[in-house]
Amino acid sequence: MRRLDKNYEFTNMTTAHWFNLLSSLPQFLSERGALFLLYKGAEIIHAYHSLQGIRPDLTGPFSTPSNLVQQMQQREDVDAVFMIEQGLVVYLIAKMQGAFTPEMDIFQYLELAQTSLEEEFGRRFYIWPQEFWNKGLFKLFERTRSVLDALPTNYLCLLTVFEENSIWASLIIEGVNGQIHRITSTQALEPASITISDWQTDYPKLLELVRQKIGSPTLGVFIDDETLRFLLRSETPLEFIRQARRTNQIILDPVPSRIRSQL
């Protein structure tokens, strides 16, 4: 698994580009919000709606947790309902702290939270719809990692997102010995020295700049901002990429064989 090198560098990143990229990530919760229920014994003691705030009207006794989350999700018309037993979060943190080992990076530590919660599914933690757990950032995180895992141990990835023909966001990730060693952007390349009048034909100029300043890219992804948003929200990203490549909405160049074979 590709980890963050303890001496990783995060440098030469334009603030606007970085936050453009972050803002395009799928939100954990969409427009309808989520309901968090905290229970003790057979009683909901706190209810919180992510858009409406505290909902005291939803507290009180219940009989079956799995039925309750299902009913609540329909009645309140939310994206998801989370129901957690009081004390579970503190217990989970204690468990994570107990399982922590010195070589863990932050992603592995957060995975402990994810797996610890999954162990409590249907026992002290309920969620409805259950598929929600596999949506959003969790899934994106897994997909990103699987792309990195498919690369050689030393790699250089370039992602450039265009808004019309200007760079809206860019990300360069350099891996050394399997670990993410450097995160940077085209800001490090002085991209002002090149002219891009049509990104679909001019993108090789950026690749050349990367070659000159950093090294030969292993994977290059060029995309426009609209297509990126669709991709990040797609339920079937591989299929989406296949189609978008045909219309040049996504350009992968170069693309390593292990990734090409999946497309």
Partner: peptide, 18 residues
């Protein structure tokens, strides 16, 4: 030491630490 007897981990990037 935490109330559970474990170390107190700071969830720092890149490496959490006690």
């Amino acid at each position: 030491v935490s109330s559970y007897g474990t170390r107190v981990i700071i969830p720092a990037i890149p490496n959490p630490f006690p």
